[in-house]
Design a protein around this nucleic acid. Sequence first.
DNA 1: GCTATCACTGAACAATCTGCCCAGCAAAAA
DNA 2: TTTTTGCTGGGCAGATTGTTCAGTGATAGC
Lengths: 161, 161
Amino acid sequence: MGIDRLDGRLLELLAEEPRIGVLELSRRLGVARGTAQARLDRLTSGGVIRGFGPQVDPAALGYPVTAFAMLEIRQGQGAEVRAHLATVPEVLELHTTTGSGDMLGRLVARSNADLQRVIDRVVGIEGIVRASTAIVMENPVPLRIVPLVRQAAADGGGDRS
Amino acid sequence: MGIDRLDGRLLELLAEEPRIGVLELSRRLGVARGTAQARLDRLTSGGVIRGFGPQVDPAALGYPVTAFAMLEIRQGQGAEVRAHLATVPEVLELHTTTGSGDMLGRLVARSNADLQRVIDRVVGIEGIVRASTAIVMENPVPLRIVPLVRQAAADGGGDRS
DNA sequence: GCTATCACTGAACAATCTGCCCAGCAAAAA
DNA sequence: TTTTTGCTGGGCAGATTGTTCAGTGATAGC
């Protein structure tokens, strides 16, 4: 859908201080409130902003261990495996990737020992041929979006403002 | 830090409708406003809620292709590689994992062809021995937290309410 | 048994923000 | 030239926020 610099700055402000309202947003952007409102609406209805859900830290909930599991799926069993994994709360995210029916999932667990239980549950279904797990040690780059927004605003946006 | 059922319900409500305020929250939870306020403050200062940043969809920004890159790092080059990858906007996330200096990164690109450019830039540094990339086709389980919150509230929380 | 502490309730207050409306203006498109 | 689009700046009623206060019940400590 394309964003311009004003959209980009709006997203950045929102990323830094998500609790500020439209009025404060318009003040910092130096535009009228209606403009900020309209931009925000456009970004939201255009799907750029999916929502403002709380970002919950699994570690603070008692799940400090994160791991990625690469799963090799038996041909034609994809649907069953997907459905199974969706029922495991510790599976935070699941992707199907290129390759012979492979999947990549993000898991969390209460401890390294607990991770074994989670993995056992994950692979406890027909259809998973092989699973290889990588435990996360550090997270040098936490999930971020601002640099990409900045780039998108710079080359995509012909500066509507 | 541990959460009880009230905290859990609060997080669920917030995940479903992030824009509701404290007052509406208290109404739906059937508690006084001060209580909802206090719980929210506690969850936030306790680190369970990291923030309410906008969830931006890279696809809507013009980056519909997602991929995971597993990088094998030469011994002792970790810091340089991390710093390098942090400068690439298309690297949304980076983890170091168990194994001989391995990293796992999440990349986005404008197209499959563009992904080649991104990967070239990612591996364009000394210290990366080998990179294997898996392109995401589907996302059967998008990043979610509610099931885990529910579980944490159920067995962690002695029901303070 | 008595008391301090804690979490919650219910209420009040001023200050602020939201949703909504309108008229005017300027630039781009038709 | 006329129309459309995006922005400005203003106003209004209604709702929400931040804050404070007193009262209550349960729990923990003395």
